[in-house]
Computed example of a mutant assay.
Amino acid sequence: MEQALRSDVARGLSRMPKEVPPKWFYDERGSELFEEITRLDEYYPTRRERAILAEHGEDIARFSGAVTLMELGAGSGDKTRILLDALIDVGTLRAYVPVDVSRGFLLDSAAKIAADYPELRIHAVAADHDRHLALLPDGERRLIAFLGSTIGNMTPEERGRFLGGLRGIMDPDDSLLLGADLVKDRSRLVRAYDDARGVTAAFNLNLLSVLNRGLGADFDPGKFRHVAVWDDVHERIEMRLRSACDQTVVVRDLGLKIPFAAGEEMRTEISSKFRRPAVEQELAAAGLELARWWVDSDGDYAVCLARVA
């Protein structure tokens, strides 16, 4: 994981505009802050996704017939329990494989699930799902869950490679369960990523602490400001960190000195929003077929299930 961080940051800080992939938000503190974000009034996606899983969990379980649930970007495992319960209720599930980049948070969450579900085999995997798909463990009739609209953190080109990579590891009886935030009023979207309490700002700024600790950098979080904007052309939110002054940041472990001009912004996350036809097209391009599509009662969010075409 250390080499992946070095590679991502060296490449991202050499670009204009500068960027760092959002997967590096999730050290232990970042994971805790994100869990707090999911409970904010402004941040609807987690509640909407949970409601869909609760309403349609039995449909998902019966249609997939999953013996193994593999969850990419597993996080705390809160929503996971809805799927685990549904799959256990229909009598198919035997194993759970949580995959996450934050090893400490992952192991803690997996231990809690193991204690609550002693009948399951638990195999926690600390891995970067962008890079390590081919190394993930096999399993019988897998339901591969990629929730939280994390797919939206990728550019269209990255989504194409990722979905193609997933298709490459999927057996004919595997299924993909995907969460996708839908296009809606821009003001609601911006509020969801720039809450009144400043929790999302703290989450964004914590990335600098991850880089300081992991790469010997000397970012001063007090010299950056959280920014969230809506990109109407690409239909996505962008989170950025804006430099409050002219400054130079040293990244010791990479041997880099990175200048930031006052007002210069470093992109830390994109969060694309989706429409059903585009989701179908991207799945089809990767060799996957949309089999089920569920939307919450307010039309904010979708969960879909895809099979090998």
Rank of each mutant, 00 (worst) to 15 (best):
P45I: 03
R167A: 15
Y301C: 04
R267N: 10
A110S: 13
I258L: 11
D27F: 00
E35S: 09
S272M: 13
Y193V: 01
E42V: 06
S31M: 03
L136N: 13
F63E: 15
L205Q: 01
L163T: 05
G12K: 04
V199G: 03
I52M: 06
G30Q: 03
R39A: 08
Y26V: 01
A228H: 03
E140I: 10
E282I: 05
R236T: 04
V199Y: 02
M1F: 03
E42F: 09
V295E: 15
V20R: 01
L207W: 03
Q247C: 10
F162N: 10
L211N: 02
V199N: 01
G165H: 09
V210S: 03
E119W: 05
D128P: 13
F34Q: 01
D300S: 06
A180M: 15
A145H: 06
E280I: 07
D296R: 05
V125K: 14
V308G: 03
S14I: 05
L283N: 07
F25D: 02
L305T: 05
H234Q: 13
G139E: 14
A54L: 12
R131C: 05
F260S: 03
A309E: 13
C245R: 13
P22F: 01
E55K: 12
G77I: 02
L69N: 07
D8A: 14
T200G: 00
A261H: 08
N204E: 00
F274S: 07
L106S: 06
V227Y: 04
D231R: 09
G75H: 03
A201S: 14
V227D: 02
S149H: 09
G179V: 02
C304N: 05
P22K: 02
S209D: 15
D171H: 12
H123Y: 09
A202K: 02
L283V: 06
A115N: 13
E282R: 10
M239F: 00
G73W: 10
G30I: 00
R6F: 08
S109V: 03
P156W: 12
K223L: 11
R307G: 11
G148W: 10
S109H: 04
E19P: 01
S14Q: 12
G148C: 14
